[in-house]
């Protein structure tokens, strides 16, 4: 424990700025974030509609528009996801960190627990990492990959219900409906997925900002410029 802390202490004084987030990753990050905000807001309002509006039905298309925006944002989310996976294969080594968790590496586990200890104030400095620390990597993998895949599958399965039997969405994703216990059940799980994204976002933003304030590396600016810089 002591050695880990001194190691990182040792390293951080000799860091030059590092180009971590390549442009496609940065663009994806912000597009992804935007699509999640839009999906969450519209999705929530589809499940829990606003107070009823009066007048003729023909004068309004509120739910219709919300659903349309949700679907468009869903496409953005899914296509972005596919592009990001592709770039993970061809991009720099940091871009690959999101695709899998190196659970077979002892150091990874050591770093993970080191991060946990750091955030529990049991350890003064975090283990060193360039792009994603082990804890962040685990959280991102769980939410963005695992829950993300579930949201894409369930989302298109539910979308396919409206497109109809035999359409591409039904053919590719319709199997998910009986698998998860029917349409209503899948909708509820889809909503729960949204909440997991919201929980992730809260923590993610907090940690990014906190890292900027308290940590030794740049954080928020890195995902804008791509460069990881180090304080003194």
């Amino acid at each position: 424990m002591a050695s880990t802390a001194s190691d990182s202490l040792e390293k951080r004084h000799h860091r030059k700025p590092l180009y971590v987030f390549e442009a496609p990753v940065r663009i994806w990050h912000w597009v992804h974030a935007l699509s999640i905000v839009v999906l969450a807001v519209t999705g929530y309002l589809i499940a829990n509609p606003l107070p009823s509006i009066g007048g003729e039905a023909s004068e309004h298309f509120l739910m219709g528009n919300l659903r349309m925006i949700h679907f468009i944002a869903g496409y953005v989310f899914a296509i972005g996801f596919a592009v990001r996976i592709y770039f993970g294969l061809v991009g720099n080594k940091y871009s690959r960190e999101l695709l899998y968790l190196p659970v077979w590496r002892r150091e990874w586990w050591r770093d993970l627990f080191g991060e946990v200890r750091y955030y529990l104030f049991l350890q003064r400095d975090p283990p060193h990492s360039d792009a994603h620390n082990a804890l962040a990597q685990a959280a991102m993998w769980f939410v963005n990959i695992l829950v993300g895949v579930f949201m894409i599958v369930s989302g298109f399965a539910l979308y396919g219900e409206g497109l109809g039997l035999g359409t591409w969405a039904d053919t590719w994703f319709g199997w998910a409906i009986p698998l998860f216990g029917g349409s209503q059940q899948l909708r509820m799980l889809h909503i729960l997925g949204m909440w997991l994204f919201i929980v992730f976002s809260i923590i993610h933003i907090y940690m990014a900002v906190r890292a900027d304030i308290m940590g030794s590396q740049s954080s928020v600016s890195s995902i804008i410029s791509g460069w990881r810089t180090y304080k003194d």
């Binding site: 216990g181 209503q184 059940q185 909503i191 729960l192 997991l196 929980v199 809260i202």
Partner: peptide
């Protein structure tokens, strides 16, 4: 209710929004 419980969650009353809201609140 439009937002219903999970069948899988046994006897506990747990709708997606309830569980999610609690999780998000706890996170905040």
């Amino acid at each position: 209710s439009a937002v219903t419980n999970f069948g899988a969650m046994g006897g506990a009353e747990a709708s997606a929004d309830k569980v999610g809201g609690i999780l998000a609140g706890a996170a905040a």
